[in-house]
Design a binder for these strands. Structure first.
Lengths: 193, 193
DNA sequence: GTCTATAATTCGATAGAC
DNA sequence: GTCTATCGAATTATAGAC
């Protein structure tokens, strides 16, 4: 992990490992867990399929390595309270368009239990922690985070997975203007009657 | 289709066909398209796997028959305008809890192109048609329907597929009180700023 | 480190007896 | 209509030569 912990080897085929991970993310994102084969991933990375097994042990291990993900949520305390929803939705849109790892995770989570578990972990830990700074009681905090996740993941599902035409065609800034108030209310509002 | 169109046969093994469809919906909903096998579906229905092929031709044909779905949306013109969001979210929650077909379709749509196409059709045709009664221009109508779909499918994805704990634990009526205002604004509101 | 060969399963689909 | 038997293909994973 850390760059200069142990100079065991002068770095060997780290480039190969990186190429495998890149190809794996692409395939998992495009085809889902079951249809993405080790053979296809190896072909994309222009290496032998057995190398994938050697480096990552199994298909599950490869996915676990490829689906490592950090939402990189900003500190919500540093955001003007009135702009919380807009900041969040802009952050997620940028994070999604720029890194296909989250799409791979989203698609795989539908059929692979391990991927679903990781999805739960990411949103339970990272998103709930970010919401927790407002300091309401834990149950309400978890509920707010869950509601935010439902709209964020629904946006991703309709735009990147199912590709509903209106959700694909709508420009990001228009999506922001519609969805920001929703997140704002989930974060700071109260349920209606 | 119609019950008494042609008395060709005094009805043979229609019960078998129905048992197959029921088992298929369960398996597709629980495992997704790829992991749900014809053998497992046949075992659940307590019939021979070759019967599935005989009746439905292929796995794709079986899925197409099992994933037939009607949202049964109410006429939104008959709903008090202020209650549109609440009526819609209650309708979807009831539709989802009572029929696993939509869960099967949702899970399969992540990895199977045909299922995704069917999902697009259902929401583009049925939901857009229901929203169209308000008679704004077609582009805006499609956009409103897409936004509604994003929140509805996000709720289903987090509650029934990924099973985020706060979304599973929250009682339906509390979900309604949070989500109804969101749908209300997507249907009748204007984008912020 | 890299590759060939193959083991061990599993699946969708077909052929054909009864 | 129903079932047995099986084909052919594809997959993950392993063993071992070089």
């Amino acid at each position: 992990m850390t760059a200069s912990a142990q100079p065991t080897h002068p770095r060997r085929s780290d480039a190969t490992r990186a190429a495998i991970l890149r190809a794996a993310r692409e395939r998992f994102a495009a085809d889902g867990y079951e249809r993405a084969t080790i053979r296809a991933i190896a072909a994309d990375a222009q290496i032998d399929p057995s190398m994938v097994m050697r480096y990552y042990g199994s298909k599950e291990g490869l996915f676990a390595a490829a689906a490592e993900f950090d939402l990189r949520l900003p500190d919500l305390n540093a955001v003007p309270p009135a702009h919380l929803g807009a900041v969040l939705i802009r952050h997620f849109l940028a994070r999604w368009e720029g890194d296909e790892t989250l799409v791979a995770l989203l698609r795989a989570a539908s059929t692979n239990p391990g991927a679903a578990e990781r999805m739960r972990g990411i949103f339970a830990d990272q998103l709930t922690a970010a919401v927790a700074v407002f300091g309401t009681d834990p149950a309400m905090t978890a509920r707010r985070a869950g509601l935010v996740a439902s709209q964020i993941l629904g946006l991703a599902f309709t735009r990147y997975i199912v590709r509903l035409p209106p959700m694909v065609d709508t420009p990001p800034e228009e999506l922001v203007s519609w969805i920001a108030p929703t997140l704002q209310r989930y974060l700071t509002g109260m349920p209606a009657s």
